[in-house]
């Protein structure tokens, strides 16, 4: 089994930009623990799908061997810059690009200086892959792909990793409930936008920890609608597609608000 670990992590840059803010500390600590678990699983590569890298035509995959720079989030620019330094597993990525055509999804590589790497990918890489030690596969969120297509993309990563004898840590980057506060709030008072969102999120997290992949998969559309989940919760589909028939267990490492939206760090054992 080439998938050696899998993680659901938040895409909001707030825990990276303001790690000391009390409502976000649980997520920061959870991200740290996830980083340790990821390292302990001894992967050769991390395969990331971030809801915030949006594509419209084709499925895009990052193919630039070395990405380095500073990013400023378009909304949270007042909190400073987000440095990044990432390497790409170009061989595995090229294999994925070639294979998606077989199920009717045209893929393209992206190899451009100063391509705008998204805040979610940078945040996940910052916490899970400090110093950019491990190479990455990074796939875009095509807005017109549904959960089923997203699962097939992740399954392609698994199959190609198997063929190339890679051990993969799979990472789905995105939020839970999507309702944010539209006003300025005191960040120290951040909380879930509504009790209903909180309830939906907690129910979804319980489903994850029940480790029944089929039941979890079946519950995704209703949850996505009720909680206005980030991008239809396709980052969970990425994880399910990569994990294949199921997984052994899951543990919620942290859960909390990011400007009213729901965020969680969940570790899955394949």
């Amino acid at each position: 089994m080439p998938i050696v670990s899998a993680f659901l992590v938040p895409g909001s840059p707030l825990p990276m930009l303001k790690p000391d803010n009390p409502p976000w500390r649980e997520l920061v600590a959870a991200y740290g623990e996830a980083g340790e678990l990821l390292a302990a699983s001894e992967p050769d590569v991390i395969a990331i799908y971030s809801t915030q890298w949006m594509a419209v035509l084709d499925e895009l995959w990052q193919t630039r061997p070395h990405l380095v720079g500073e990013h400023v989030d378009e909304n949270w620019h007042e909190y400073g810059v987000m440095p990044f330094d990432m390497h790409i597993d170009t061989e595995l990525t090229a294999a994925c690009i070639e294979r998606t055509n077989e199920f009717g999804i045209r893929s393209k590589g992206v190899d451009y200086d100063q391509f705008p790497v998204d805040s979610g990918t940078i945040t996940a890489s910052h916490f899970l892959n400090p110093q950019g030690r491990l190479p990455l596969v990074i796939a875009a969120n095509n807005l017109y792909h549904d959960g089923a297509v997203t699962e097939r993309l992740a399954a392609t990563v698994r199959q190609q990793a198997d063929a190339l004898d890679r051990r993969v840590a799979l990472v789905g980057v995105g939020g839970l409930s999507g309702t944010i506060f539209r006003d300025d709030i005191d960040p120290g008072d951040d909380h879930l936008a509504s009790p209903a969102d909180d309830e939906e999120n907690r129910r979804m997290l319980e489903l994850m920890t029940a480790a029944d992949a089929a039941a979890l998969r079946a519950a995704l559309p209703a949850y996505a609608q009720a909680a206005k989940a980030d991008m239809g919760f396709k980052h969970m589909s990425w994880l399910l597609g990569g994990l294949g028939d199921g997984y052994e267990s899951a543990r919620v490492l942290g859960y909390g608000p990011t400007w009213g939206a729901g965020s969680a760090v969940v570790a899955f054992t394949p």
Partner: peptide, 23 residues
């Protein structure tokens, strides 16, 4: 911007803009 209407407020801005959809 998810929170509010924002206005560019730096006198000079420069760089390379790469379209994430059509790079």
């Amino acid at each position: 911007t998810q929170v509010g209407h924002h206005f560019l407020g730096v006198p000079q801005l420069s760089g390379k803009s790469v379209d994430p959809i059509f790079p």
